[in-house]
């Protein structure tokens, strides 16, 4: 890398420096923005410009998180929600993709089910909440079911659309080479739609958190969603805020894992 740098013209070096400066300033302003907002919030709260009892404040949130971490509640509630989310995420991604493959492979079933899929997709899943509780009980199962419900339809529809948009000529090419249907699936359809798959993983990270937190609002004895509902009911806004901050961190981490998975696979592919 270093020696290559030496061969660049001074104009190109200048361009690279400019580029570096730009990314650096984006990062800098990004972090500054966070601190400015947090700082103003804190300032307004300590000067009683806003009521910290209602609006909470960064320092109160940090204290609350410290308390939760101290008595083990933080780990307990986070792990409950994380477990539900990862479960809902994995099941809906896996099953949704398999269903999409089946629908792709059998056009007859696809055509039969098309209107039902569209209706299911536009249905607000939370409307099914009471049914889920009656059918699944009030435990983890119901919450995971809510998460799955939210992710699975969109997974199926997105992946199916991805498969359907694979270049027809490439399919024809493989047919002329004597490929079987299964070979076409594994050699062409799945690799060609890899980026669609990564997008749906990224969407599902967000959606599965939505689903499980929603599920916990409906029925739960533990979890970050439970903490938020509970905090709201007893008017402990610090607790609500703390739970939201932890949610943000966990969801961000999960997204980062998917993004790095994408990087790893892409670099393996294009080595």
């Amino acid at each position: 890398m270093k020696n290559r740098n030496l061969n660049y013209s001074s104009a190109h070096k200048k361009y690279l420096r400019g580029l570096k400066l730009k990314t650096f300033s984006v990062h800098l302003v990004r972090i500054l923005l966070l601190f400015v907002v947090l700082g103003l919030w804190e300032l307004c709260a300590t000067t009683q410009l806003i009521d910290p009892f209602i609006s909470s404040s960064p320092s109160r949130i940090i204290n609350q998180i410290k308390i939760l971490a101290g008595n083990g509640a933080l780990w307990h509630h986070s792990s409950v929600t994380l477990y539900e989310t990862v479960l809902a995420f994995s099941i809906s991604t896996l099953v949704g993709t398999i269903v999409a493959i089946l629908l792709y492979a059998v056009p007859f079933i696809r055509k039969v089910l098309e209107p039902y899929l569209i209706v299911l997709n536009s249905l607000p899943k939370i409307a099914l909440g009471p049914l889920i509780i009656v059918w699944m009980g009030t435990g983890t199962k119901a919450i995971v079911a809510m998460g799955i419900l939210i992710c699975i339809v969109i997974t199926t529809i997105s992946m199916l659309n991805g498969y359907l948009s694979v270049d027809k000529e490439k399919i024809l090419l493989l047919k002329t080479m004597g490929a079987s249907k299964l070979q076409i699936l594994f050699k062409l359809i799945l690799p060609a739609t890899f980026s669609d798959f990564i997008s749906i993983l990224k969407i599902n990270v967000g959606m599965s958190w939505v689903g499980t937190v929603m599920g916990e609002y409906l029925t739960s004895k533990a979890g970050l969603g439970y903490l938020i509902v509970y905090g709201g009911q007893v008017f402990k806004l610090d607790l609500v805020m703390a739970a939201i901050v932890v949610l943000c961190i966990l969801a961000g981490l999960m997204y980062a894992i998917i993004a790095s998975l994408e990087l790893i696979v892409n670099s393996k592919r294009n080595k």
């Binding site: 090419l173 493989l174 080479m177 050699k187 294009n270």
Partner: peptide, 20 residues
């Protein structure tokens, strides 16, 4: 169109049909 598979290198593209 050449219909090469962008995610396969040239050798894998050329030998694609041999796999079937």
């Amino acid at each position: 169109r050449d219909n090469l598979f962008e995610w396969l290198n040239i050798w894998k593209n050329v030998t694609l049909g041999l796999g079937f």
